[in-house]
Design a binder for these strands. Sequence first.
DNA 1: CGACGATTTGAAATCAGTCAAGAGCAGTGG
DNA 2: CCACTGCTCTTGACTGATTTCAAATCGTCG
Lengths: 247, 247
Amino acid sequence: MPFSTILMPMVTKLQLWTRLEDEDRDAVLALPHKLRSLRAHEYIVRDGDEPRHSCLILGGFAIRHKLTGSGGRQIMSIHMKGDVVDLQNSLLRSADHNVQTLTNVEAAFIPIDVIEKLAADRPTVGKAMWNETLVDGAIFREWTLNVGRRDARTRTAHLLCEFALRLEVVGLGERCHYELPMTQEQLADALGLTSVHVNRTLKSLAADGLIERTNRSVRIPDWKKLAEIADFDSRYLHLDQRLPAAT
Amino acid sequence: MPFSTILMPMVTKLQLWTRLEDEDRDAVLALPHKLRSLRAHEYIVRDGDEPRHSCLILGGFAIRHKLTGSGGRQIMSIHMKGDVVDLQNSLLRSADHNVQTLTNVEAAFIPIDVIEKLAADRPTVGKAMWNETLVDGAIFREWTLNVGRRDARTRTAHLLCEFALRLEVVGLGERCHYELPMTQEQLADALGLTSVHVNRTLKSLAADGLIERTNRSVRIPDWKKLAEIADFDSRYLHLDQRLPAAT
DNA sequence: CGACGATTTGAAATCAGTCAAGAGCAGTGG
DNA sequence: CCACTGCTCTTGACTGATTTCAAATCGTCG
């Protein structure tokens, strides 16, 4: 293998949606990049920036969020190992949202023009990256539905289900037992609720035996039951047959 | 000009974000397609379908929406002349949301494999289409923020501002005077509110002189004032310098 | 031990939803 | 030309989910 495999998480992620030839894979692995360690709560991109690099997460968690004029924060998505987290901002030239670390993060920064050239030279890779941004879009849509039309209980349960599957896919947890990477206040900002209400809602889910939690760890005793009250249907994650019976 | 110009609205839209060479433009215009007239409220794609065609809107309005298990509906976006409205669904193979006409619609249906081939053969066009889906994503994010973190009044005003600019860009209205293509119930589903509350909110905006309305027509006497109380910043539409001082 | 952030809890306030009914308006058919 | 039908819009009174405000407890890390 002629190249470093540091960027392998990106290849793995791309291969979730598109089969890559060896040369395509090698071309991705050969992308020039700078490695950086970021501490928790650092901004990667700020709304209004004109980023020249895209940021591939190798370890840790990051979020994308926007702020209202009155200071309200809405978290739009969570990102983890293998996600290229500001492809959207950098391809559109001008960032329309913030990207911020949640935990300490190991990341590779790749110049955006190199990514654009790769997409043009290797249509298969371009298609795979396009697909990744489309799946991001699908997740945004589900979040909009979640925030707009589900009550606090359903909404919270739904988020817990999404985490379960997404962590499972990248091997950072099991579907029925994982570590929540967020505080209740951050959950609130992802759910469009207040942290107080998130707290009460989590307690109510626990009281009904739908989840068990100690600290940040979540255990789901009966996946099907939780998925049902969460109104959760994993199709929007577009994981296809990659997961056993996800509901 | 060797080709029909029926697909010109698509070229115009793509050129909002990317400059196209003549050959690229001609390649788009030469796309094989079937024209269809759709009546109001017809489904173009249903959640769960596996569409083989993408649908370019030539006239009229369409929406994308998702339903909760309990029947709640969230409208995710509105589409008009020049929008390729189910690129997302068709490229991902399996539709994760519904696409439905709002009014009578004239549309061109283009086979998805032809679109994929075009994107691969002509990277510039591929990039332009990718960009279009990225801007869609940017609009989803803003809607999530809108629904999750803004109160009913701000939220409603924000939507009115977005419509104003988007209709202006495609030449279907003026920024300060346009025809709303939706009923109040549909507005409610876009805003995550009830139609009763939308009604009261519109009345309250009108009472404060921020909008004037007769039937579906909206007039905005003072754009800056409305944009301000709407917490509206048009950057997320990524229209760049294409609009005079949009705020 | 002390400090700081995160979680938990209670009580009061409020924004938006629900239910229900009437008014306006356009299209249809007699 | 008019009554009828079916939407959409409007309005009022009441309800309720979620927020707000405030304070106590917990946990972890230096």
